[in-house]
Design a binder for these strands. Structure first.
Length: 489
RNA sequence: CGGGGCGUAGCGCAGGUGGUAGCGCGCAUGGUUUGGGACCAUGAGGUCGAAGGUUCGAAUCCUUUCGCCCCGACCA
């Protein structure tokens, strides 16, 4: 039977688009570069929201909402910011049929409008810190788009905080980077690398940008979340001032941090295989699907009765379970369909299982091939119905850990070290790809040249770099600085 | 914005020397099936992207226009 999914080895980009279509995550909208997020895809986004929002609240943040439309002049108050975002702004010039006296931009990000509001809210050091997050949509008029990875409009959260001291703001920036990494690793099962952006790659208007970088299934990098230390740049542009304990006027120190629907793309590309999605159980909209199997009518009744019994056990245990009772489809079709949609665990119940009051458990993160190669058994037979909830919950934990382990093994196997020359760098990039972890003492101009030659960019300077001093592959200078180069989305 | 391609049924496509539209999948109904993507039969579904022109007659030829996709430049 011909697959609906282009194999990754044949065309990774088509594979990605096939998965999104066949798993019913999203569709292109009538407007170029915009997408409709369908219920199954949106539920994944809701899992991102739930995982992050809980962590934001645990770290003392509250949610609020700022408006979509921003006076154009606001963007122009911070020089780097406007230079960075001007090319991709959508601007409203007509409202209610009248030409507007001042054009309004559709927010590409909200530092400016929020900075303006904070300037009104902050008078005293006692008003600080302000720790606010908003869940919102933003618009950036990108030339080339891809579902979830880069769309004209996207959903995200953006945190904006203001602090009395630089130290506190830096600590906040790092804390939120750690929150993102914790979410990525423990919820999305993606082993991200925490690091600092190079001057070329940092956020327009930031002093420092921190990032979590993930490796996709083709070895490319995906910037999956960023946390920015903005220094006093926006405080000065928007006049966020306060009186300290000594009655001296001080500018506040601000941060911003964001993570978007791009994370859904990261989950697809970090875990998916040629059969389709593989979703981490923590995020999966459906954790367990039950597929009933029967031939005769009397078998159907018994099988369905046991299927409902199992469904009830699992639901009572807090498992997100769905019984696939569609009568017009064969079990084989359903197996493929749910594998395509990435459901972590499948339960099969047929007449043989009814006879034993048992079920068959199948896990999405394994397969006959993986099992043959020493991996976990793809199917467990004869799991008693009485213990099914405990068995399934244990299996979900195992699958979650297994996906993280597989992604980590893949990332490490595709991280190249020991590169000593630019020639070697180019050769390794072309033949093997992946992350190139190198000593780096080059300038921003050097970085530009490498990008022009190879399309690889500095993804980050990793925070945890224990290599010690070495020789920069490009300049030949001695340095302790480590950079990770890769091609990126 | 530069280069290329494409707009015909829900989706994917064929038709193109002008004569009033077809295939696959999907969909509906009935029957037989169902432990790895079932099969048969019957049926529904189309202002051929839009506008103008040529013609007795245009999906087809001409002109204009709109949109989308891919590659590049650009970018979270």
């Amino acid at each position: 039977m011909a697959s609906k999914i282009t194999p990754r080895s044949e065309d990774y980009s088509r594979w990605y688009l096939d998965i999104i279509r066949e798993a019913q995550l999203a569709e292109n909208a009538p407007v170029r570069g915009c997408m409709v997020i369908k219920p199954y895809g949106y539920t994944l986004w809701e899992a991102v929201q739930a995982g992050l929002d809980r962590r934001f609240k645990e770290t003392g943040h509250v949610n609020a909402y700022f408006p979509l439309l921003i006076p154009k002049s606001f963007l122009e108050k911070e020089k780097e910011h406007v230079e960075g975002f001007a090319p991709e702004l959508a601007v409203v010039t007509i409202g209610g049929g009248e030409q507007l006296t001042e054009p309004l931009v559709v927010r590409p990000t909200s530092e400016t409008i929020i900075g303006y509001m904070y300037s009104q809210w902050v008078q005293s050091y006692r008003d600080l810190p302000i720790l606010i997050n908003q869940w919102a949509n933003v618009v950036r008029w990108e030339m080339r788009t891809r579902p979830f990875l880069r769309t004209l409009e996207f959903l995200w959260q953006e945190g904006h905080t203001a602090h009395a001291t630089a130290e506190e703001a830096v600590a906040e920036t790092v804390q939120m980077l750690n929150v993102y990494a914790d979410f990525a690793i423990n919820d999305a099962a993606i082993p991200v690398i925490k690091g600092v952006k190079s001057a070329r790659e940092k956020f327009a208007g930031a002093v420092d940008s921190y990032t979590i970088e993930a490796m996709m299934g083709n070895g490319w990098a995906l910037q999956s979340g960023t946390s920015h230390f903005l220094g006093q740049n926006f405080a000065k542009a928007f006049d966020i001032k306060f009186l300290d304990q000594n009655n001296d006027t001080q500018y506040a120190w601000t941060t911003s941090w964001g993570l978007s629907t791009r994370m859904v793309g990261a989950v697809i590309m970090a875990h998916g295989d040629d059969q389709g999605l593989r979703l981490p159980p923590v995020m999966a909209p459906i954790q367990v699907v039950i597929v009933p199997i029967y031939k005769k009518e009397e078998e159907r009744a018994a099988v369905m009765a046991q299927a409902r019994e199992v469904e009830a056990h699992l639901r009572a245990a807090g498992v997100r379970v769905q019984l696939d009772a569609r009568e017009e489809l064969t079990p084989g079709f359903k197996f493929n369909d749910w594998e395509l949609r990435g459901v972590p665990v499948r339960i099969e119940i047929g007449p043989k299982d009814v006879a034993n009051h048992a079920v068959v458990l199948a896990r999405r993160d394994s397969s006959r091939a993986i099992e043959a190669a020493g991996g976990p058994p793809a199917k467990q037979f004869g799991v008693p119905v009485d213990g099914v909830a405990a068995a399934v919950k244990a299996l979900l934990v195992e699958v979650q850990a297994s996906l993280l382990a597989q992604a980590t093994t893949f990332r490490d196997a595709n991280t190249r070290t020991g590169i000593r020359s630019y020639d070697e760098f180019r050769q390794v990039l072309d033949t093997e790809g992946g992350f190139l972890r190198v000593h780096w003492a080059g300038s921003s101009e050097d970085e530009d040249r490498i990008k022009a030659d190879t399309k690889a960019t500095i993804r980050c300077y990793p925070l945890e770099a224990a290599e010690g001093e070495g020789i920069c592959f490009y300049t030949g200078k001695k340095t302790e600085r480590i950079a990770i180069f890769a091609r990126a989305y």
